[in-house]
Design a protein around this nucleic acid. Structure first.
Length: 883
DNA sequence: ATAGGGTTAG
């Protein structure tokens, strides 16, 4: 057996043990006068080494190949093999090392086009546009002719680094190098044009193909169609479908999916469903059958459109058809359940997933955790997070962002900082999302200096100032009385992008990385919504209008939310007819008014007691197919109650149920108040019990009823309600406990008052120490000195723990009530460490002791009759722009 | 090698 046959045999036998194979072959190859083995053997050996990641050995092999006794031609091919094997495996650095040695050993024998292509491809996959360029130059220098494939890599690489115009130039110059663009050259460019929002240039290329007598393939068509669908140009998309049909290419499932996706995103879920059903028809229409993605799109559409039951039916269908298998489907369904408020069901689904062997990923947990946080259920969110950890999935920045958001919206900065520490100490660092949450929170608290610092840190970390960050700063300016400055800056953003923030003063100068100039961030719909919202809030509707016109002039199309801001603004000023003009304008501009638009108008009419007009408007909704929701009815109930037409208002509950709209706490609260006001306490009681059944045993309901009873002199009823609240360990914050106990003592029902206060103490409540006074006085007058002293003691004790805020039992149980109402506004000079999260570390409870001392000195809790919960009816939808 | 789906901030 000759030595190369032996080598081949050794390699074959020991392929399972690369280390041994290498040892044997190295021995063989390095023995004096051993010939270079055939190319096939070199390739096999280098593949083996690459797979086993034995890279030093690979370089050793190169040295053996390069021994001077081997014939140059064989060395060249062997080295080329090393290059191509390494490059194909994605080992860019190694491939380059071998390549360099090839080039330096054989300067007058350039490598093949194929080898260059292989290296170029590897550089492309590593996103090394710089290397791609260098290699191409080397290629030209060496006189190696590029091929179409070479150009495709170059084009792709340029596109990959957002140099689309250069890519186009190269594309146009291909014929100079005797290359013709193929379907991929066109495909890449078309795709990139679409992604850059230049779909019209993409269509130009399509036309160009046609002129050259090339027929575009289905991927090219689908790229374009999907792009038009995404930008909402349905007409254009349809034209393309026609065109592809004429070209003899039939729309496939991807084409249909694009359409379904676009319809769902536009809120036209039923139209999407129509297509989906057509696709399901067995071959009757000759359409492609829906695939897993189609199902997912449809499911997502139903969920986002709030059509939970339809979604549920689809899930069942998927189960039966065996297509409910992917984690993505589960995650869509999970987020659908969460969005529709079915958190319990979502939690159960998560458990089912585990049982069915579909391991939830961080998305799954994050969906649930975010949902729980949004519903205020921080402890459940925490327990899901623990579950997540136990199942071996580590929380990521998204997880922490949800928690962070929970604390920030509650103005609990110290809690937010704790999350930040927890986050960083588990090796997870804030991303631009988390920073934006914090940034917004700091602005909301008026802690502008820290906000500025954070912004600088974000910039340093290279997060860049995207439009979201800019919007936060602009909104912050508006909320801190600098509306005009904000308007100025937005104006300047059109020219200077986020650099316009530099006009805020020195702290902002140099914030913006000018190297990213091509991605200038321009004001958008949300930016203008913020400005217009604040102008309207300030009653400056004329200026708001001007801004709307300017915005449209700059090709930012208004959505229904921005019109709603005007409707709200006019209604607030009592100019309902102007609000109606906005409504008609929306219709003219083909911007469909939403339920919220109508609710705002109804609210405006209600303020003017125009009940007839409200009923007309509700009919109009019916005719136009705009669904009513609970707020629609609540507005009507409110208007009726205002005119003391309480029975008529109450009868609406029936109608709501008939329309499967569940009355909420607001609906019941208004009716309870109204019945009390007309002294129909029986009806009020009945309504209260109805509310408990419909909405659950809610603290708000009890406190409302208790306050109403107390207000109208129903002291015994009020006392009973308070007792129930104590049993249920509700927060007493909104109960009139202090006045009630005072009143009981006045009416000589000292025992009742005494027992209430004793229960409060026994249950561990911390409450206003002034509550003790009437009881102690009354006991004293009755000569029960011992009991009076005992209570005095308790009072002192309470004073030491009471910080002015009410603490509920469960809050204390979870130790999470600290600093509830704390808001420090001192403009302290901040001297902060370089670690940016330390920026926020200045808020803790040093103020509490001082406050307490002052209160005790002044004689406790003056004027702190626990006011009934401020009326916070959800008649008008939330104003802060949420979508 | 170019097309379609999931989470988080405004």
């Amino acid at each position: 057996m000759n030595s190369s046959a032996l080598a081949a045999e050794l390699l074959r036998r020991n392929a399972g043990n690369p280390a041994l194979a290498w040892r044997l072959l190295r021995h063989l190859l390095s023995s004096p006068a051993a010939p270079l083995p055939p190319l096939r053997l070199i390739i096999s050996l280098s593949r083996l080494l690459v797979v086993a990641r034995m890279l030093p050995e690979l370089h050793h092999l190169r040295r053996l190949i390069l021994l001077p006794r081997h014939p140059p031609a064989a060395v060249r091919t062997a080295l080329s093999a090393l290059v191509s094997v390494s490059a194909s495996a994605g080992l860019l650095d190694d491939a380059l090392a071998h390549f360099r040695s090839l080039r330096s050993q054989f300067p007058s024998h350039p490598p093949s086009t194929r080898l260059y292509n292989c290296l170029l491809n590897c550089s492309l996959r590593a996103h090394r546009a710089d290397l791609v360029e260098v290699l191409y130059r080397d290629m030209l220098l060496a006189g190696v002719p590029p091929e179409t494939y070479t150009f495709n890599i170059l084009i792709f690489s340029l596109c990959d680094s957002d140099r689309i115009e250069e890519a186009r130039l190269l594309f146009d110059n291909m014929p100079l190098k005797n290359c013709q663009p193929d379907e991929f050259s066109f495909g890449f460019l078309i795709c990139r044009y679409c992604k850059a929002g230049l779909s019209h240039r993409a269509v130009e290329l399509l036309d160009e193909m046609e002129r050259l007598g090339r027929s575009p393939n289905i991927v090219i068509y689908n790229t374009l169609i999907s792009s038009f669908c995404k930008e909402g140009s349905i007409g254009e998309a349809e034209k393309l479908v026609e065109r592809m049909r004429k070209d003899g290419i039939f729309p496939n499932v991807v084409t249909f999916n694009s359409r379904i996706s676009a319809l769902c995103k536009a809120g036209k879920v039923l139209e999407a469903y129509q297509i989906f059903r057509d696709m399901q028809e067995d071959n009757v229409l000759g359409l492609p059958r829906p695939n897993q993605i189609t199902f997912n799109l449809m499911l997502d559409g139903f969920c986002k459109g709030g059509m939970l039951e339809e979604a549920r039916a689809l899930v069942e269908l998927m189960k039966v058809g065996g297509s409910l298998t992917s984690l993505q489907s589960y995650n869509i369904w999970l987020s659908g359940l969460v969005k529709c408020g079915r958190l319990l069901e979502a939690q159960q689904l998560l458990e089912q997933m585990v049982q069915q062997g579909i391991e939830p990923n961080s998305y799954s947990y994050n969906i649930l955790i975010d949902g729980l946080c949004k519903e205020g259920m921080i402890y459940s969110a925490r327990s899901v997070m623990n579950l997540m950890k136990n199942n071996g999935t580590s929380p990521d920045p998204v997880t922490y962002s949800s928690l962070l958001h929970w604390y920030c919206t509650r103005r609990n900065i110290s809690g937010a900082i704790k999350i930040l520490h927890e986050m960083t100490s588990s090796g997870c660092f804030p991303n631009s999302f988390s920073c934006n949450i914090l940034l917004q929170s700091l602005w909301k608290e008026g802690r502008i200096l820290e906000a500025e610092k954070l912004l600088q840190e974000m910039n340093k970390k290279g997060y860049g100032l995207g439009i979201v960050t800019c919007n936060i700063v602009i909104n912050g300016l508006c909320e801190n009385g600098k509306l005009d400055k904000a308007i100025e800056i937005v104006n300047s953003m059109w020219q200077h992008g986020s650099a316009a923030l530099g006009e805020l003063g020195n702290a902002f100068l140099g914030l913006v990385d000018d190297r990213n100039e091509k991605k200038k961030c321009c004001p958008g719909l949300i930016t203008y919504s913020i400005l217009i919202n604040h102008l309207c809030k300030a009653g400056r509707l004329d200026e708001a209008r001007k801004l709307l016109l300017e915005m449209m002039g700059r090709n930012v199309a208004p959505d229904s939310i921005i019109y709603d801001i005007f409707v709200h603004g006019f209604c607030k000023q009592g100019k309902v007819s102007s609000a109606f003009k906005v409504l008609r304008d929306m219709e003219k501009k083909a911007c469909r008014p939403s339920t919220r638009t109508y609710n705002l108008l109804i609210w405006g009419l209600g303020k003017k007691h125009q009940i007839e007009e409200i009923l007309d408007l509700i009919n109009e909704m019916q005719e136009k197919g705009i669904p009513k929701n609970v707020r629609t009815y609540n507005n009507l109930i409110h208007a009726l109650c205002d005119r003391e037409m309480v029975d008529k208002a109450a009868s609406l509950l029936e109608e709501m149920l008939h329309n499967s709209i569940l009355p909420n706490i607001t609906s019941f609260s208004m009716l309870i108040r109204a019945f009390c006001k007309i002294s129909d306490f029986d009806a009020a009681q009945a309504m209260f019990h109805g509310a408990l059944t419909a909405c659950g045993q809610k603290e708000v309901l009890y406190s409302l009823m208790c306050n109403e009873c107390f207000l109208y002199g129903k002291i015994s009823e009020a006392k009973e309600l308070l007792q129930i609240a104590l049993e249920k360990e509700f927060s007493l914050e909104h109960f009139p406990y202090k006045s009630l106990i005072e009143e009981l003592c006045k009416e000589d029902r000292i025992d009742d008052g005494h027992s209430l206060i004793n229960t409060m103490i026994a249950k561990g409540y911390v409450f206003d120490p002034a509550t003790f006074m009437p009881v102690i006085d009354a006991l004293g007058k009755k000569g029960n000195k011992q009991e009076a002293d005992k209570l005095s003691e308790k009072m002192m004790d309470m004073a030491a723990h009471h910080d002015g805020s009410m603490v509920s039992f469960s809050d204390r149980l979870h130790g999470d009530s600290e600093n509830k109402h704390q808001k420090q506004k001192q403009e302290q000079e901040v001297s902060l460490g370089s670690d940016w999260h330390n920026l926020l570390h200045r808020d803790d409870g040093s103020g509490i002791a001082m406050k307490l001392l002052k209160r005790v000195q002044k004689g406790w809790g003056q004027g702190s009759i626990p006011a009934p919960r401020p009326q916070n009816f959800d008649l008008v939808d939330e104003w802060e722009i949420t979508n």
